[in-house]
């Protein structure tokens, strides 16, 4: 009997020791897991800071680009109109009432056109206000501005206006991307037909732009790494974890397909 009791006592002593060792191992595991979690959180914070810094840089770049656009628009468009108005008004001869009336009317038309151009420019540049009403609406505005030029046959399929999702951080970047793509097309593509598709499918925003212009060799352009062109588009898409597929060849037009996790 005494032997039995001793056996039980040894069993209890060993079991208690094991029961005390288990929390120790548990503590070591928690410590190690917590350390990994700490590293993960710090890494996430670093990435967030990096992302914010890149966003800031992108905003500065966009602002630079915007300033250039303002300068170009003012110089090439509004400036010309106002110069013409000055010329017309300078040439007014008050003694010849009929001609003077006609010239003043012409000048008035030119001034009105200048005002209209300035309004269009303001609308185009004020992207943040545009995306406040949703990305779909902003893209519609952009396309409407493009269609007013009358130089392109447009095929548009934009279903984003019907979507309730928004992502304030990404919206402005996406809009600027589209503006950049359209600007590049206007400047270089010499296209006559443009097809634009924008839709949302399973939390991915798809933006496709296709035109029948002169096309180019993408590798050659990418290698140049110049200014606000293709490289800037790639960089901005990378920032919002997006994907860009570019198909182009000299004489065969260009198609750009962008996929971005959204919202």
């Amino acid at each position: 009997m005494q032997n039995e009791t001793t056996k039980i006592a040894i069993l209890v002593a060993i079991s208690t020791l094991i029961f005390l060792l288990m929390p120790i191992f548990l503590l070591l595991y928690i410590r190690s897991y917590n350390r990994h979690k700490k590293n993960h959180v710090l890494e996430k914070q670093n990435m967030q800071q990096k992302f914010e810094a890149e966003m800031l840089q992108a905003r500065v770049e966009v602002q630079d680009q915007t300033m250039q656009s303002i300068a170009t628009e003012l110089h090439d468009n509004v400036g010309q109109l106002l110069s013409l108005t000055t010329l017309t008004l300078n040439s007014v001869n008050l003694s010849d009432e009929v001609k003077a009336k006609k010239k003043i009317e012409n000048s008035l038309q030119l001034v009105n056109k200048s005002i209209k151009e300035l309004r269009e420019l303001a609308k185009l540049l004020h992207g943040e206000q545009l995306v406040e009403n949703g990305l779909g609406h902003a893209i519609d505005q952009e396309i409407s501005w493009l269609s007013k030029s009358g130089a392109y046959e447009l095929q548009v399929n934009n279903t984003l206006s019907e979507s309730d999702y928004t992502s304030p951080d990404k919206d402005l970047i996406i809009l600027r991307l589209l503006q950049e793509i359209i600007n590049n097309m206007i400047k270089h593509a010499q296209a006559t037909q443009i097809q634009i598709d924008a839709y949302l499918a399973t939390n991915v925003l798809h933006l496709k732009v296709k035109e029948n212009g002169v096309g180019f060799n993408p590798d050659e352009i990418k290698a140049r790494k110049s200014g606000m062109g293709l490289n800037s588009i790639y960089k901005r898409i990378e920032m919002i974890n997006g994907k860009l597929i570019l198909n182009s060849a000299p004489g065969k037009g260009t198609s750009i397909s962008i996929e971005i996790p959204y919202p």
Binding site: T5, T6, I8, A9, L11, V12, S15, T16, F19, L20, M22, P23, L26, L27
Partner: peptide
């Protein structure tokens, strides 16, 4: 909480076999 775990987890065996051993 760790103190509580050590105490109550460690005492489990002693509680279960209480009275069966008096070494």
């Amino acid at each position: 909480v760790t103190g509580v775990l050590f105490y109550y987890f460690g005492s489990t065996m002693a509680n279960i076999f209480d009275g069966l051993f008096n070494v």
